[in-house]
Design a protein around this nucleic acid. Structure first.
Lengths: 212, 212
DNA sequence: GAATTTTTCTATAGATCAATAGATGGAATT
DNA sequence: AATTCCATCTATTGATCTATAGAAAAATTC
């Protein structure tokens, strides 16, 4: 009789325990040197193992890039959807969107940076898949802006597409300077929100109570 | 007696007549595939010549990148300095800066894109040189914003550094989507200006005449 | 049209890099 | 202690890519 032992149940679950570390090292190296500028040797060096040993964890350098990009996207994916489905005024939701779009930088800066800068080098299929998702996020922003225009929360003469691209560009750029500037993400998000909602200019009237 | 003929005067001036074309092809290929993702063969293919023939025009692939980046920077350089030295209110000058920062996209999109995305792969020395210039441009924006705050044209509670990074991020991102969206640069600049100055939100008071 | 200069070509060297194959060491399991 | 499984290693192949050398062709000049 073969008895299903505890250890045999665990089998497979324990496989490639170091995989997360490996992918994180890949993210770091790709973020620093770019996908094509980085060699598998660089990744191995960052881990203190031999180049060929990496292939125990991924079957190709391109797959490593895909894994890194996926982890870079996840952060946005989770947060964005929840907010899109949630409640609140357009203004409130835009604030949440900007915050949630910046927050993955806290603990996944390299993954996000690689996703933003290197996804173009993914093989065709996964690039399309990730591109589709990317457009989905743009739409979430755009829809909230349109809603705000329709409800009179935002100016009616906006071009919502331009506004979306402007906001996303602004937020995404943070991935490249977040390391050098040392401002905490919630602070950055706060400044961005005020800039996007109110602009640089002084309000026409004396600073009065804003509709809430 | 050797007479200095017209042709001998012209000598050297006529050398490498095709150089601008070669660099433009390099810009196109670097913009599309990234510096390390592009091969010299790709550039040669874009020109319909042999790979080795390129080395008549530049002595290394890295030098080609440098030439492309320089042409990508020039556009900003010229315009930015003139505005910084010019007259006008902070608001007016910021508007000019945003316009002049976007305008090189019209006729040098690939050069700008390569400068923004691939300058990190330049050899140390030229990277530093270009980095120094880049910080110079940031300062131009930041100084105008500070001036606007001091003169009461802009809100006093801004973080001028964050505002600068936000605006530059927004503008620079345009280099990556300008091709797909088909909006003319002056239109994009106009939308960005309104967004930056006034924000998305409706002014607190009824749309009144703004101070000019 | 001969001479000179500019441009492009062929051929190839030399280096780097991703990926495979198979061996080895070590931990866990029985 | 023997066995099985996991992780890493050594060694190497084959492909790709930059860059050089020198010949050939095309254009320009005299």
């Amino acid at each position: 009789m073969t008895v299903v032992s505890l250890s045999s149940l665990r089998r497979g679950a324990n496989q490639r325990r170091r995989a997360p570390q490996i992918i994180e090292a890949a993210a770091r190296v790709f973020a620093e040197r770019g996908f094509h500028g980085a060699t598998t040797q660089d990744i191995a060096d960052a881990l203190g193992i031999r180049q060929a040993s990496l292939y125990y964890y991924f079957s190709s350098k391109e797959l490593a890039l895909e894994l890194v990009c996926l982890k870079g996207v996840e952060g946005f994916l989770e947060a964005g959807k929840a907010i899109a489905a949630g409640l609140g005024s357009a203004r409130e939701r835009l604030i949440l969107l900007i915050n949630s779009h910046l927050s993955p930088l806290i603990d996944r800066r390299d993954f996000v940076k690689v996703f933003l800068n290197e996804r173009q080098h993914l093989p065709a299929e996964s690039r399309r898949r990730i591109g589709r998702w990317s457009r989905g996020l743009e739409r979430i922003f755009e829809d909230v802006i349109k809603e705000g225009m329709a409800k009179g929360e935002f100016r009616a003469d906006l071009d919502p597409r331009m506004a979306t691209l402007a906001i996303l560009g602004m937020c995404n750029a943070a991935s490249s300077w977040y390391r050098k500037e040392n401002a905490p993400i919630p602070y950055i998000a706060g400044e961005f929100v005020r800039l996007v909602i109110d602009g640089l200019g002084k309000p026409a009237a004396k600073r009065g109570p804003r509709r809430r």
